[in-house]
Design a protein around this nucleic acid. Structure first.
Length: 516
RNA sequence: GGGCCCGUAGUUCAGCGGUUAGAACGAGCCGCUCAUAACGGUUAUGUCGCAGGUUCGAAUCCUGCCGGGCCUACCA
């Protein structure tokens, strides 16, 4: 239906045992900026997010909440769905693992793996801690002086438990995975994560338990309904469920293989080892790229449930503004690295980068236009060297940003954009259009036109990061709605177009005076 | 234990073999007055973690040490 090139980007599906926090918001935000950039650049984008709703924890949490697991999942899934609105995300699909289409896809994938001989029946055995409701590897436990074995991390007593389970023959896929990494050097990013995965796979893979009989809340194993599929086989499959798997004629089938899975660094292995192994075993192409981002700390402190210092994105947006938060999260930390969330830095970004540099550039330019040019786009005259320098820089931005988005270097994209904003502010001072207004109105108009065009180009490219604010700026510049994608990057503003009265887009953030 | 990464101005970081080590924020001084008291110019501070080594030359390569982080499988 479209001859545009497809681009498929996904967030992980979020587990509904948790309430949304900045970590979730951050992953989705990065995907959102990427999806928006690609749409503006003419791709047919499919951006998928959703919720993971199966498993023992949901079964238990829902019972504790006095409701059925589906009702419970419905409720929590809804909080994730509402985050989409709060954060201004633009997903094209929202998938839930409890949907019938997902059950069908998981079962189809299972049958394929079974038929290929990559699934066999065995016995899952391990050290189980009742208190933690978790299995531990032998190396994660130790024997105490009383002879009882305990989980090293939690101190909970563990017991040896065995249950029947199906296994995926992951051990057979090590060499083929390494060959895939070798042939597709961009598959895992950033580089440091790739190294980790490589060394993990080289160290040898064990078969993977992919079913459980100890709980019911999951996708039943075809032909053996005592079992439900266990975590990753269920969760990861969502990415192809969306594309209609196993129906290759589905309207979204053309989006597979995914161009990009964005994940937190904690689940990189599942996406770069298990997932491509499952897919290759089933005869499906693996995704093109998996990018793992880092974690946020809160004012220098590790975020943890026990500290109760989770950051609520909804509160954040309420206090500082949506685009301000979006900008901060993507600008403050190199995408891929860990970062610290702190108020001083956030307020610094809001005031320095947004209010003083960008917002004020727009405001000072547009108010001179409003006062001197009768509120219309001025006409340009011959360009000077200084004009060409600024315009040349602004023109080169699109190509640069394309490269940076190819690498998910979102922070570098923003840095480059802001360098041009700084150039433009220097240009205003050097050209002093307020003085030209008295001596050389034609030259004044040229200067203002140059500024407006530089701002227009920068703003076009800032759209993926701050869609709301940039829309307002483009309105004030008189850029029509159909001239805001990158195809219109070189469509310059026609002189004489009437402009609305300018008004500030990025207010300074003034900290409320703390008591005492 | 094994593997990977990091330690550079007050702060966050760039630089990864070649003249006097850079940027941003913050601080001081000067200028401008179009603008959200915003903007521009300028000044300042660094034994580039420590100790050896390779080299004509090292923040940049090698070794050791100190300090910090991450990975080392079935919690999403």
């Amino acid at each position: 239906m479209s001859d545009k090139r497809p681009f498929y980007v996904t967030t992980p599906i979020y587990y509904v045992n948790d309430v949304p926090h900045v970590g979730h918001a951050y992953t989705s935000l990065a995907c959102d900026a990427i999806a928006r950039f690609k749409r503006l650049d003419g791709y047919d984008v499919h951006f998928l997010t959703g919720t993971d709703e199966h498993g023992q924890k949901i079964e238990k949490s829902s019972a504790a909440a006095g409701m059925g697991p589906q009702a419970y999942a419905d409720k929590v899934s809804e909080t994730f769905r509402s985050l989409v609105g709060t954060m201004g995300f633009s997903p094209d699909g929202f998938i839930r693992t409890t949907e019938a289409r997902h059950r069908a896809a998981c079962q189809a994938l299972w049958e394929k793996l079974k038929a290929a001989g990559d699934i066999y029946e065995g016995k899952y055995a391990g050290w189980y801690a009742v208190r933690d409701e978790a299995f531990y590897a032998e190396s994660e436990t130790e024997k105490g002086p009383d002879g009882a074995r305990r989980a090293t991390a939690s101190g909970a007593e563990v017991e040896w438990v065995e249950e029947p389970s199906y296994f995926f023959r992951l051990s057979a896929w090590g060499e083929r995975l390494l060959a895939y990494y070798e042939a597709n050097p961009r598959f895992i990013a950033p580089e440091s994560r790739r190294n980790e995965v490589l060394s993990f796979v080289r160290s040898g893979l064990q078969d993977l338990s992919v079913s459980r009989t100890s709980f019911k809340w999951g996708v039943p194993v075809p032909g053996d309904p005592k079992h439900v599929m266990y975590v990753w086989l269920d969760a990861l499959t969502n990415y192809i469920t969306e594309c209609g798997y196993p129906d290759t004629t589905h309207r979204l089938a053309r989006f597979w293989p995914a161009d990009l899975h964005v994940v937190g660094k904690d689940i990189i292995r599942f996406h770069t080892v298990y997932w491509p192994a499952f897919l290759m075993a089933a005869g499906v192409a693996p995704p093109r790229r998996v990018y793992a981002h880092g974690w946020w700390t809160n004012e220098g402190q590790k975020i943890s449930k026990s500290l109760g210092n989770a950051i609520d994105p909804v509160a954040l947006v309420g206090e500082y503004g949506l685009d301000q938060v979006r900008y901060f999260l993507l600008r403050e930390v190199p995408f891929g690295a860990d970062g610290d969330f702190n108020r001083r830095a956030l307020i610094g970004r809001i005031n320095s980068d947004l209010a003083n540099a960008y917002g004020n550039l727009c405001q000072r330019t547009l108010s001179i236009v409003a006062k001197n040019c009768n509120g219309r786009v001025p006409a340009r005259g011959p360009a000077t060297e200084a004009d060409e320098a600024l315009l040349g820089r602004a023109r080169s931005l699109l190509a640069t940003l394309r490269d940076e988005f190819e690498e998910q270097a979102l922070h570098r994209a923003l840095i480059g954009l802001w360098e041009t904003i700084a150039d433009a502010n220097r240009y205003v001072d050097a050209q002093a259009p307020w003085a030209l207004a008295k001596t050389d109105p034609a030259r004044r108009d040229t200067v203002l036109w140059v500024l407006m065009d530089a701002i227009r180009r920068v703003t076009l490219l800032v759209q993926p990061f701050m869609p709301g604010s940039t829309a307002r700026i483009l309105d004030q510049l008189g850029v029509p709605a159909d001239k805001r994608d990158f195809a219109a990057f070189d469509v310059e503003l026609p002189a004489g177009r009437e402009l609305p009265t300018p008004s500030g887009v990025f207010p300074r953030h003034i900290e409320p005076k703390p008591a005492g």
